[in-house]
Design a binder for these strands. Structure first.
Lengths: 351, 351
DNA sequence: TTGAAAGCGCTACCAG
DNA sequence: CTGGTAGCGCTTTCAA
């Protein structure tokens, strides 16, 4: 390559020859400013010869419309915001890709912000996002964020859609999955294959989804005609040791469980790790599918939700609001599906 | 909640009472426009009484500065762009989170665009991104994208950093990992534990990384004093059937391999699936770590790279350019690490 | 310390 | 069909 010896001056472009503006293009093409604007924004109604002249000048000058000026003038942003609590979680990144897919179709850009569970930080980030005059916002709100300012925002004209969990303290469009139904199905399935003592591993952080799924666990028990035993419900997090501890505790029960329902994908993985460590082989069904479930031994049966579809649904909801949809807030609940892989089977318990 | 009966009119905010501008704030606070500007941008040099008056008015009017006007005026964007080929790949989303971490620290926003491998589409998306007058751009470019227009952009003053693979046809800062070294280490490790016939599963799409890793495979063989046998190098993709086929083919060889080196995480998972299907238990080391490697049977030994660190490094490189760093383009190569988990061990081959 | 006024680059309304 | 021109909301001189 002949620019192998390129200097940083070039690389960084510090010569920074002021970017061409429409005025420059107009001058170069020998037409009026408005004509350039018309051509650039594809408005039509311009003489072919002038169109060509402008296009040439645009290319010569490497012109690219200043988006800020354009947005300021038109008052549109062509951007929606998306806030997730952890972009590197596969569930959330799939969510984002569902949203992006829909946004791309509408030629909108997505401004993604990943926030931690620190709700003060989340608020700061969301505020900064909103300053950009987004057309709308999709968010997975951190557990206990104070959403009052968002309500103002909504009232001021920025539609907001919540995903994965409904907001507390405000009303807005929401897309969630049928957490309770999925969990109940898992429990019923375990009952059908012969389990009578089914434990529930719920995630400590009382996140909405865990709570719904725990409720579903109880409903499933009731539907199966099984008694609910508080001793079988444990609070854990994603740590293998914590799950190991819980597993040992359960094993010491006079009437230990033969199966586990886990409310959350990360917890399921931790339980899998703990069981391997312990050589324990309790039946297990987990909420949330994961990549290698099929390669587990036995392959893990899961309640799967489709995060990409959730993202799409949320985006559709948002864009319909942006387009002016009116009417009461909408709550969409997407179905979940039990994918049988064998890990629910009744297997001999061994400590 | 008392707004349970909120109407869509409110939810969508279609009353849309024109957002307050600084002018409104100025009027309300009884001060000049410039004073509001000074207070809002925290410039100082304003009488305390007026500061308070402005702050009150800001709150009353729920004022939020119009970012477009601000950016237009100042010519800054406080935004960097990031283009990845597939946001739902855990590797890429980790990359993004590394970049975001650094951006957040500098109060910059990250505009993320996920593109497919269609290079024409990629170019469109990138152009649209650049129209936003980004301060800089980090990208994982699709294989064969035509990057000439990016070079213009770079020259015009927008620093560009490539990640995961260097650009072809232009010169820019780059962050990659030591693909060749990592692969060679994998092969040497397999040799050390006793393997003499080592296959290489390379990903068909001649992506830069696969090619480097394949080169590393050959280097590793050479370092181990092992002959290179072209029959042992197969091209596969992420499909289990394709890998199954390849495995069967290899097994028919007069002198079949006892171990596999896989150049890519998704391929590794496909091989794992194929081996389970076939009941085959060839030793296996894969480039790229994955979530449940430790739960495989046997646990999968991998060459791990740290995508978050790559993202951080890329962001640092970019921000230093934005800050005016000058000098030749920088190529950063991050080390990889072999994480021994047992899947490399010499085990009896069975068809 | 303060306000008036001149634009940033663009679009949209006019009159021609 | 075309060009001039008045702002979009903000920052930043410049005088006062």
């Amino acid at each position: 390559m002949d620019d192998a010896g390129m200097t940083a001056a070039q690389a960084a472009g510090d010569a920074a020859p002021r970017r061409a503006t429409m005025k420059d293009v107009a001058a170069r093409a020998g037409v009026g400013l408005s004509t350039v604007s018309r051509v650039v924004s594809g408005k039509g109604g311009v003489a072919p010869a002038k169109v060509r002249a402008v296009e040439r000048a645009v290319r010569d000058l490497n012109f690219s419309r200043n988006d800020f000026a354009h947005r300021l003038r038109t008052g549109t942003s062509a951007t929606i915001g998306m806030v997730v609590t952890n972009i590197s979680d596969p569930f959330f990144s799939a969510l984002v890709s569902g949203v992006e897919e829909r946004a791309r179709a509408r030629d909108q850009l997505v401004l993604v912000a990943s926030v931690t569970d620190d709700s003060a930080e989340a608020e700061r980030v969301i505020r900064r996002l909103l300053q950009r005059r987004l057309d709308g916002l999709i968010l997975v709100a951190p557990e206990d964020a104070d959403l009052r300012f968002l309500q103002e925002e909504q009232r001021a004209g920025t539609p907001v859609v919540f995903v994965d969990q409904p907001p507390t303290g405000m009303d807005a469009d929401v897309v969630v999955v049928d957490n309770e139904g999925g969990a109940a199905a898992a429990v019923r399935h375990l009952h059908e294959v012969g389990h009578r003592r089914i434990a529930c591993f719920a995630h400590v952080s009382g996140r909405y989804t865990s709570a719904r799924r725990e409720a579903g666990y109880y409903r499933g028990l009731a539907q199966a005609g099984l008694p609910a035993d508080p001793a079988l419900v444990v609070s854990v997090d994603d740590e293998v040791d914590v799950c190991t501890e819980a597993l040992l505790e359960l094993a010491r029960l006079p009437d230990p469980p033969t199966a586990i329902f886990s409310t959350n994908g990360r917890t399921t993985k931790a339980i899998l790790g703990a069981q391997r460590l312990l050589g324990s082989r309790l039946a297990l069904i987990g909420f949330d599918d994961f990549d290698l479930a099929v390669l587990m031994d036995p392959p893990t049966t899961t309640i799967v939700q489709d995060p990409v579809a959730i993202g799409r649904a949320a985006a559709d909801l948002l864009f319909s609001r942006i387009a002016g949809r009116t009417g009461p807030v909408q709550h969409i609940t997407l179905a979940t599906r039990l994918v049988e892989r064998g890990s629910g089977e009744l297997v001999p318990y061994r400590d």
